[in-house]
Write a protein that binds this DNA or RNA. Structure first.
Lengths: 345, 345
DNA sequence: GCTGTTTACGCAAACGTTTGCGTTAAATTA
DNA sequence: TAATTTAACGCAAACGTTTGCGTAAACAGC
């Protein structure tokens, strides 16, 4: 009678009507062998007629498999959740998960243990989508042997998590900076993200590598940190332009910073690239139709999400991490927002 | 021994070590009465030491409550999932869900029945976040009495779902159009979304209401439909400007359309508002620092998400929908992107 | 016709909880 | 002191599955 509320029937009721034991019903519905085609068909139609759906909780209890993976957005990353970066990663995760029969549990702004979701058996594994490499809670995942991947993962030299999924951005950023240097720029700014974001560290490295390779001096003033927000992009771009020696070129670390910075440039009526060269970094197509067309580092965000999900599911199902994956290369595309260094005024 | 894999203990093991029955452990851990403070404390420390976490599946199986609500993004809305609109709604849902002890199950691009998630007992209720009012699958939710809310819901005159959560946009849009008319504009364009999106219908109504109230003629050419994308905003703005009699003012239905349209305007070097007045609609702050500051319809998207979650949880827990909610009013803010109609050329 | 194999099923345990009911012993009341 | 209530706990059923094992019947090979 309690079941009436839920308007669905159980395996037992079907068994009665089909005149078989309920274990046979289970096998029939799950496509296991040991059931004749006749009874299988009978049970199948009966199940449909009776509006039968398996109870996921009961199934999970005995089979120890929920077919659910958790997406965890740490508290430290909440402010960026609304950015296209996150939604594109989730789109990638979702695509693979759906295809392989997994549901998604979304945990935004998590402040407690990441492990607990697994320990409480709410998920078969978790994907932590955060970019702070100082997150101690990651350790518990590997320590307790919890199936998990981390996006974008951590610094290559000290990875606290063996399954870090990240795009390979060094090359594209190096190319971008090299491109600007070759155009004659020397005062090149890069609006970064949080100081302990993987992305920031990665970008700084690309920047410094390119500058060192060209024997150029690195001025920290041109490398401001931001909170990844549109507003910060706007404000920091303003501060850069207010410098005694303002940059002649600027790179932006993500969509929001790019948009904010462009608005600042527009507000000051600076011409791109005549007065200032701009390289943006995009996960979305928000800036696809900007005038002028923007020289851009394109990050394969959806692929990152797909790989993270694929790796995790493989780990869940086989117990072992899949072998080395091919790198997900960010692309550098030259368009018309970068040009020769303006002559000093 | 199988439990070793999961590295957690069960209620039974704790019971043994505490020298009580496992029902006592359950009661102690759940804060029910019938347990002395001494044993309760003993069990609590023991549970912590032994790394105990309740098994959600087992708990759900008997208590018929999962504490999970599903967020369903229909297939027809997938293309907009990456828009700030969706992430802000999810942020609102998440805030309330977390506070009230619910987890979120995210289903992107669902093509099957919405009801099945409930019928398979994966969620206690669902929030459908879509904007097409021709979605037949909504009917099954009410038909089977499944706890659910729908965002943004449906047209007020024919609601197929009793719990539609939506912002109240008519007034703000009416004000926006009235504002433009008062500025002398007559050729006013509105770049809408999908033809059977609730938002489009709502906007058309506001538009036509304002025009009728001023005894002005409505020209359908100025009311193009879009797919809510940046690209479409860009292209449609171009088509509008290519019209023999181009509009002197334009309204945009959401963030993406606004961005696309602004890019088109910028690409043509039109001055805002001298050549063209622009009213944008925003869920995000992507356009917060635009130059000039944009006259805007601000939609309280996070509040919509919060209300949807709040209503649903109330429905789940009490079995009845909460009484009438106060409307979530969109705001109209005049800034500097709207000005007097330019004199005819 | 005997043995061995396969097919199609049933039985019952198990998964880890919650919870109604029963049973002591202690505490309270008359 | 006896009667009654209450507190603290145990017992066992229940939730709806999956699955290992057992078994009868059918079937094959010789």
């Amino acid at each position: 009678m309690d079941r009436r509320v839920f308007d669905v029937s159980t395996i037992l009721e079907i068994a009665k009507l089909a005149n078989v034991s309920y274990s046979t019903v289970s096998r029939a519905l799950n496509g296991q062998k040991g059931v004749s085609e006749a009874t299988r068909a009978r049970i199948a139609t009966l199940a449909r007629e009776m509006n039968y759906y398996p109870d996921s909780s009961a199934r999970a209890l005995v089979s120890r498999r929920l077919n659910v993976i958790g997406i965890i957005i740490p508290r430290t990353c909440e402010y960026t959740f609304t950015s296209p970066y996150y939604s594109h990663i989730m789109l990638g995760i979702s695509a693979v998960a759906t295809q392989r029969g997994y549901q998604l549990m979304l945990v935004i702004n998590e402040q407690n243990s990441y492990a607990s979701f697994y320990q409480r058996r709410m998920v078969d594994g978790v994907i932590v989508v955060g970019n702070h490499f100082d997150d101690q809670r990651i350790f518990a995942l590997t320590e307790h042997n919890i199936p998990s991947t981390v996006v974008p993962g951590f610094l290559p030299d000290s990875p606290p998590h063996p399954l870090s999924i990240s795009s390979e951005n060094h090359m594209a950023n190096y190319q971008a900076i090299e491109h600007l240097i070759n155009l004659g720029h020397r005062r090149i700014a890069f609006i970064l993200g949080h100081p302990n974001s993987v992305y920031s560290v990665e970008r700084i490295k690309a920047y410094k590598d390119a500058f060192r390779d060209k024997d150029l001096e690195i001025v920290d003033e041109y490398l401001p940190y931001s909170d990844f927000s549109v507003t910060d992009g706007f404000l920091l771009m303003g501060q850069l332009l207010d410098l005694p020696k303002p940059p002649t070129a600027v790179l932006c670390i993500n969509d929001s910073i790019s948009i904010g910075a462009l608005n600042q440039i527009k507000a000051r009526n600076l011409r791109i690239p005549d007065d200032l060269s701009v390289v943006v970094t995009c996960a979305s197509n928000m800036l696809a139709h900007y005038d002028p067309p923007l020289t851009e580092v394109t990050v394969p965000v959806v692929s990152v999400g797909k790989t993270a999900a694929d790796t995790l599911i493989q780990l869940i199902e086989t117990g072992a991490a899949p072998p080395g994956r091919s790198p997900l290369l960010a692309r550098f595309t030259i368009r018309r927002s970068t040009g020769p260094r303006p002559r000093p005024d």
